[in-house]
Design a protein around this nucleic acid. Sequence first.
DNA 1: ACCTGAACACCGTTCAAGT
DNA 2: ACCTGAACACCGTTCAAGT
Lengths: 199, 199
Amino acid sequence: MARRSDHSRDEIREMSLQAAEQLIIAQGYKALSARKVASEIGYTVGTLYLVFKNQDEFILHINSRTLDELYQSMQTVIDDHQDAHACVLALCRNYYDFAAANANRWLLIFEHALPEDNGVPDWYQQRIRGGFEMLEKLLQSLVATHKPQQIGTAARVLWGSVHGITMLAITRKLDVVGIESVYELIDSLVENYLAGLTR
Amino acid sequence: MARRSDHSRDEIREMSLQAAEQLIIAQGYKALSARKVASEIGYTVGTLYLVFKNQDEFILHINSRTLDELYQSMQTVIDDHQDAHACVLALCRNYYDFAAANANRWLLIFEHALPEDNGVPDWYQQRIRGGFEMLEKLLQSLVATHKPQQIGTAARVLWGSVHGITMLAITRKLDVVGIESVYELIDSLVENYLAGLTR
DNA sequence: ACCTGAACACCGTTCAAGT
DNA sequence: ACCTGAACACCGTTCAAGT
């Protein structure tokens, strides 16, 4: 042992991330541990710290991959819709669909408290901003008369609202069961909020 | 040692909960541990398990106290407002105010994953339902023409939405700074959603 | 009856030592 | 240079043994 060089650094990173994702999907984020991941990929714990700075950075990368998948699904929704109004509604429903289909990984994104004061890394913030801009562009064409600043507000309101409904629904804190009733909430939010905005 | 009987079971419970709250307020929920709480109150770890079933149940009680404080603040808001519309708006702002003022304890309520399948205990569910009913009653007088089922939907939408905006704002994921801009989001949500509802 | 303290099975993280 | 494995300082939870 020692100096195996069976895998490159990048291969070890990739294997670790995949092993971690399997653990999280199967047993939730609390089941994630460096030791389990290491044993899963056939290395020792120390090796993980050669490749990731610490658990925080490790989780940040896991979340980054989840966010990438979410944005890909958003892109698909956008490509599938001509009408901006229908597209916003579909995007919001898609947010819930994605979260429900990938509950444990999606929850990790929000359960992972960010490293105190230094805030989120740039490349992470970038990914969040990407989704925002999709939404802003759509809203712009829906409520064309409004000032840009109001579009920003509207995008944040919608994003935050759909997020909250999704979060509470998935953690069963809304007294809601089944996909239909969550859709009902999301539809009510989008239709009435947009109606109010363009009133 | 052994058989001290310095404190009753209830006193130990109360001391433990207070020590835990101090820990969480000062250092966040991750700093909470049975050993720290025990040493803080001058007992050993084992004693805590005499008084609480396990950490899950312990956290449930901490959260229950936080929720009680939240509902008290909601009650105060309701008592202070005659106009139903202004009251709904004030309640939503109050939700954010409370969360911001008690960030670490408030976050624990939602970061604590519930014990798998058996769901939330009854007395816990009851407290959530209490807040819901306040909101439903107010909405009823605002949109009197709607069916009861639609009131329930509207209450869930508002609750979930304000929760999401608050959550993302507090964890700094909304690109929003300062209390004024969060109020701006909450106001936009409430005014436009209600306008859409009564359209 | 009440509480201890040691034990068990885990953690994240570091780093001297091996090849 | 790469990886190990043991160490350190923690966890939650249990339970025989003391008073």
